[in-house]
Design a protein around this nucleic acid. Structure first.
Lengths: 95, 95
DNA sequence: GACTAATTTGCGCAAATACGCAAATATCGG
DNA sequence: CCGATATTTGCGTATTTGCGCAAATTAGTC
């Protein structure tokens, strides 16, 4: 594994390693349908602008996917992709 | 999952989500025998004091285990524990 | 076009964080 | 005890980060 890949993995873990962002992930986890940001605001008591930024970070790391839907944007969790990356790390660590 | 557990998980992910700390984990991952901090310094080009602090963070999150050995302290990776926690998250995310 | 709702962006701030260096601490061997 | 080695801790600093508020943007509705 080269440095770039390692940095990428670190960025993923850092994205997940913040309480409100992790809360957003769990919230999305419990929804089958994609959710808009206003709905996601409810799970963590911060300003909508903050939620917007957190979702942007999660999207940059491929954790969530965004789709425009009229004037709102709906987010969904990239379940298998994130799960796969976490398991790959777990496998490496377990050796 | 209550807030405390979620915070704990976030703290674990944050601990792993920093490049040099992740490098330390990978370095330990490749060693069968516990390693002392001086040896671990080599894998990330930072001051030994920084390595010391990073190892402390990893120890606090249960990622590594420390054992005193004369004037040096040897660190080993809590492989199964970390792997288990990461897989538990992966399972939750995959739903 | 005007109005409204959803979201993002600019800005400033306070707290956290990663870092290097130097000093302190601990432990070993002579 | 003394010097050497390993590690931690104190301190100052530069950067990052999470946050709220207000303004800007985007898109639907009338």
């Amino acid at each position: 594994m080269d440095d770039d890949q390692r940095q990428e993995l670190a960025d993923l873990l850092k994205a997940l390693g913040e309480f409100n962002r992790l809360s957003l992930v769990y919230e999305l986890c419990q929804c089958n349908a994609p959710q808009n940001a206003m709905c996601l605001c409810d799970c963590c008591s911060v300003d909508s602008s903050v939620v917007s930024r957190h979702l942007k970070v999660l999207a940059q790391q491929g954790v969530v996917q965004m789709e425009k839907k009229g004037r709102e944007r709906v987010y969904s969790l990239n379940r298998s992709d994130v799960a796969h990356r976490l398991r790959a790390l777990a496998d490496q660590i377990e050796g």
